[in-house]
């Protein structure tokens, strides 16, 4: 799913300068799983708005905002949405643009779209949607995403005790791949495999 993180209150208020009323769209897809569009997140943003004298005209919680057709159907029936000039999004950037594709309203992103991530127990960035998956050659672990240098043919020289030189709190992803290569007797294959630039 797409991991989203709420922007700072300052940035949100800055983007709302001069606005007196907004309509909120919250996404019950990925953003809810990031806890950035759940009940509490909606309450938090509503409070921020009322504290700053911005009226909330209405709230629509959509199953998945990125389903453009569905979003359009639902929102066209919502009178408060129709009335609003400015829409606040508790969704990823795709959700914002999906609504923007059929609406001329002012669109305000409240969240930063951070990563394609796995959820629980912790959020882990696993994929950067490169469009050309190499997982079959890398023991199911993505170095394009999880190695800060995106090295696809093997590690740099920076791993010490299996940790990454850039963030010693994190495992070097190539060491993780290496351990699996060893387990699966695939070291020779790794040595002789060259992943071409794509």
């Amino acid at each position: 799913m797409i991991l989203t993180i709420k922007k700072s209150d300052e940035e949100i208020l800055e983007s709302l300068k001069g606005e007196s009323a907004v309509f909120i769209i919250a996404c019950a897809g990925c953003a809810v799983k990031s806890h950035t569009a759940d009940k509490q997140a909606v309450e938090t943003i509503s409070k921020l708005l009322s504290d700053n004298n911005i009226k909330v005209l209405g709230i629509e919680i959509l199953g998945a905002v990125c389903n453009t057709q569905k979003a359009q159907e639902t929102l066209s029936k919502n009178i408060n949405f129709q009335k609003a000039k400015t829409i606040l999004f508790l969704s990823c950037g795709t959700g914002v643009q999906a609504v923007g594709s059929f609406s001329d309203k002012r669109l305000i992103a409240v969240l930063n779209s951070a990563a394609i991530a796995a959820v629980e127990p912790s959020y882990s960035k696993f994929c950067s949607v490169c469009g050309d998956c190499i997982l079959s050659y890398t023991q199911g672990i993505c170095p394009k995403t999880r190695c800060p240098k995106s090295l696809v043919n093997g590690p740099c020289g920076g791993f010490v005790n299996g940790k990454c030189e850039i963030d010693p709190a994190k495992d070097c992803v190539w060491v993780l791949i290496y351990e699996k290569l060893k387990q699966n007797n695939a070291l020779d294959k790794f040595l002789n495999r060259f992943i071409e630039p794509r």
Binding site: P155, G157, N161, G162, W174
Partner: peptide, 15 residues
């Protein structure tokens, strides 16, 4: 380049 201090060392040898 090669780093003799990288561990696991055998991975650096392989590289």
């Amino acid at each position: 380049a090669v780093n003799p201090a990288a561990t696991p060392n055998d991975l650096q040898v392989l590289m």
